[in-house]
Design a protein around this nucleic acid. Structure first.
Lengths: 196, 196
DNA sequence: TAAGAAACTGACTGAGCACTCAGTCTAATT
DNA sequence: AATTAGACTGAGTGCTCAGTCAGTTTCTTA
């Protein structure tokens, strides 16, 4: 692995665990086993390191979500929503670093003034919501989901629930495992087509 | 107003707007119109200021939520849930400072090692969830809400939705106003008693 | 009104920080 | 073997910051 990649890897670890402000460049250089100057040779600033990370996290996760979204399935749309929720929660755990970063204040603060950051965040969130929207649209076609609903908006509502679950888990607020069944049931009741 | 109170007031403003780390004690003293030493005369550290703020925000908001929860109403439980959602969103706007602080990383980080902070956060969140739980329990009694649901867990699900809405609004992610109707409808579909 | 207590002050301290830069090392090219 | 460009180094720089403290002012009470 190149030193540049090693820096990015360690930085991802540190930024996601300790937050942007609480990560010192000296610590990053030490933990990577690289001189501090090397970091600034490859990246123009601490912010630059952060943007590089966010970009590469995006590049890593978007295809996975896209692939999942496009995968054919025998299931009804309503069942797909349930599966998408599982998939999202699974991804939030296996890619904890990205999700931890997305639940910090810094990226949104940066997005205010940095369009590149804004674009990356938008792409990531759109991709997240898309998997739910696809399932809902599918469900409206196969009759399992109420056709009167606006797919995008319902997708955002569903997303708002899992997003909070992830936040609760991250901040040790509630035991999310204990809520999983209710989460699924609630989404089903919320979306299902009762006219059939 | 005493200088101590003035410090707390300015600190609330700064911490909620700029975050804990990005607020300097020098800035706090200047903006309050008080010497830096005065802050450390009244509070033993920056963390002490933060805890004092969090405590007083709790003292301020808990009674309001309690009063609301206990208020008598002619409405059905299901309608009360809708009203509680409105109330919560209204409070999130009028007490933006508290909600902005609750959506930062620092309080949860602090809660890991500081039981006092942990207790305050727990009290606040319990109170938030309680207003939804009360409405749901009421609804189960008057028959408007499905009695098969676990009130507390459903309340947490409802809370997870508004909590995300507030987060979306705070981070300029989505236009929450445009989702308000869907939020209400979703909760109704999720909770209502269909057996009647 | 005197004396003690409490409130307040702001220059100072030392630690930590992001970032720089003059120079070294490495490897490819001529 | 000499040249050169890119990769890398780490001591140094200037700044910011939380917290201190010796001293001053204001309030309280006897």
């Amino acid at each position: 692995m190149t030193k540049k990649d090693a820096i990015l890897q360690t930085a991802t670890y540190l930024f996601s665990r300790k937050g942007y402000k609480d990560t010192a460049m000296g610590e990053l250089s030490k933990m990577t086993g690289v001189a501090e100057g090397t970091i600034f040779y490859h990246f123009k600033s601490k912010q630059g390191v952060f943007l590089a990370i966010l970009g590469s996290l995006k590049e890593g996760i978007l295809p996975e979500f896209e692939r999942y979204r496009k995968a054919e399935s025998e299931k009804t749309g309503l069942d797909m929503v349930e599966e998408s929720l599982s998939f999202y929660l699974y991804m939030a755990k296996s890619r904890e670093d990205l999700f931890a970063i997305l639940h910090q204040r810094y990226p949104y603060e940066l997005a205010e003034s940095n369009p590149e950051c804004r674009d990356i965040l938008e792409a990531i969130y759109n991709c997240f919501v898309d998997i739910f929207e696809s399932a809902i649209t599918g469900g409206q076609e196969d009759g399992s989901i109420d056709p009167a609903l606006t797919a995008r908006k319902s997708a955002l509502i569903v997303f708002s629930m899992v997003d909070s679950m992830v936040r609760f888990r991250m901040n040790n607020l509630y035991d999310v495992g204990a809520l999983y069944k209710e989460l699924i049931d609630s989404c089903r009741r919320m979306l299902e087509n009762r006219k059939r």
